[in-house]
Structure formats: structure tokens, C-alpha cells
Nucleic acid binder design. Sequence first.
DNA 1: ATACCTGCAAATGTTTTGCAATGAT
DNA 2: ATCATTGCAAAACATTTGCAGGTAT
Lengths: 140, 140
Amino acid sequence: MAQHGLKSTRQRSLIIDTFFSVGGHLSVEELWNKVREQDTKVSVATVYRTMKLLNDCGLAHARNFGDGQTRYEAAAGRHHHDHLICTRCGRIVEFENDRIEAMQEAVAKKHGFTVTSHKMELYGLCKDCQRIPGSPKTEA
Amino acid sequence: MAQHGLKSTRQRSLIIDTFFSVGGHLSVEELWNKVREQDTKVSVATVYRTMKLLNDCGLAHARNFGDGQTRYEAAAGRHHHDHLICTRCGRIVEFENDRIEAMQEAVAKKHGFTVTSHKMELYGLCKDCQRIPGSPKTEA
DNA sequence: ATACCTGCAAATGTTTTGCAATGAT
DNA sequence: ATCATTGCAAAACATTTGCAGGTAT
């Protein structure tokens, strides 16, 4: 970390290790809770600061799935991908599709735009939730 | 409006008229400013409440382009569409592409999802901004 | 030693809400 | 008259920041 003038601290190591070992698409609060299982003293502010750094370094990507919280996913050496989000159980599935990406480029070009980034999210019901009628987020 | 137990008030009429006549993708604050040109007394809370109603009725759609504010666009009788957003000047261009939609469906089906809604946003530089080096949001 | 980091609490920015007063039907 | 709606100010949320003390290099 020293190459960017960053220091390796107990808190940062714990936060980063936890983030990568838990995986998925964690909100800061979720990550904070996991971190506090190991060290009760770590403050949210530090988790926010650390995830921001990780994002700036390109090791994590900030995402926003419309639930009002920023979520982070590991990014090291990963391809760009998009997401399917189950609006009932919250499951998030990642996918890649080169043909869609190509068509996005084509659409942008048609409108004179140069695309630097994009996001695409498909919301709906996952396989399991389609057969279960009733209200969302009510796991058995 | 009576069919939903909603009442027609001076504030609502003004907010709704303003929203539809200004058009585009307005944040609540932008809309509030426009509204106050006609009536200084209208509160932000009322604008928030009215736009939420309009959204629930399906007459407006809430959008989130990553600038931290919810933006609303008119929705009455419009097709689904996606957006190109210029990260320099903030210009927003709408587009429709049936082939991309079809491929989204296909991807979802492959993963066992039923899609109920989706969002796709392409961020980059518009035609005009590509030729202007320098910092964003600095209009001549 | 010298930056950089941390925790805390206070501040931020956006959106929501409780409540008493006002207004529409 | 009744019940929805308003404005205001306070509350709620997620996130950021100032600062004084602590820590890695």
C-alpha cells in the first residue's frame, strides 16, 4: 500500500480481508457488521473511508441497486459485468454479454456519444421466488 | 384525481403543470425552483409528496443518474427507454432499442429470472463535449 | 519525527414525517 | 362536517468531515 502513501493498519487489513472473504455485494453497514464480529471498536467512518480508497484504487466497484445504499463488489482483475436482481429475495446474479455491450456502443455512436462506462440492471424474480407467492424478503 | 381519493389543490396543479411543461429529467429541487417562480409559498415537502404520487400513479418515473438526487421524467403513454448521460455537461439523451431489450430477456431467461423492469444507462461524452478539453460542467 | 489514520461526534445533503392549521368536496 | 393536504420544523438516512489523539514507517 505504501506506493500510494497509504499505511497498512489493523483496521484496514481487517476491513479489506473481510470484504474479500465475504464476497458478494456488500453495503457498508453489512460489511461493518461483519468487521465488528472481529473487532468491536472499528468505526463506520473507517469502513466508509477504506471502501472509498479501495474503489479509487480499482480493487472494488461501488454499485447502487436502488435500495438507497452503496454496495461494493470485488473488482480485481474482473471483467465488466451487469446484474440481475431479484426484487423478492435480494439475490444478485452477475452476467456478461458481449453482444449487448457491442450494441450499446453502436447506439451511443449513433447519438454521437463516446461511452466511458455504463450500467445495466435487470430487476425481477429469480427462479425460486417465481413459484412462491406472497410478500418479498420473507424467507422460510 | 378524485377517483383515488386525491384532491385537486392549487399547489398540486402548479407542480404538475410545471413538471409537464418544463419536461426533461428534473430533480425535485429544480422543479421546486421552477414552481416557486409562480408561487413562493410552496414547500419542498409538497413537491416531494406530489412527485411521489405521480410516480405511484405511473404518470412519472423516478430515475437516479448517480448525482445523488432523484430525477423525474414524464411517463404518460411513453415507451420504455434508456439513457445516454454526458458526464461533462449533464445532457441526457433517451433511446429505445428493441434488440437490446430482447437480448436482456434472453439473458434473464437463461438465468431463470423473470424480468419486471430494468435500467440501462450509458455514461460518456456527448458530441459537443468530446471536442472540448477541460473540466466538466463549465459551460461557455 | 512525520505524516497518515482512527474514533468520535458533529455536519452534510436528500428525503421523509409529525403535527396543527388550512382547504377541498 | 369530514378527511385530505399543506407548511414548517424536526427527524431520518446514508455518508462525510473536523479534530485531537494514536500509529505506521
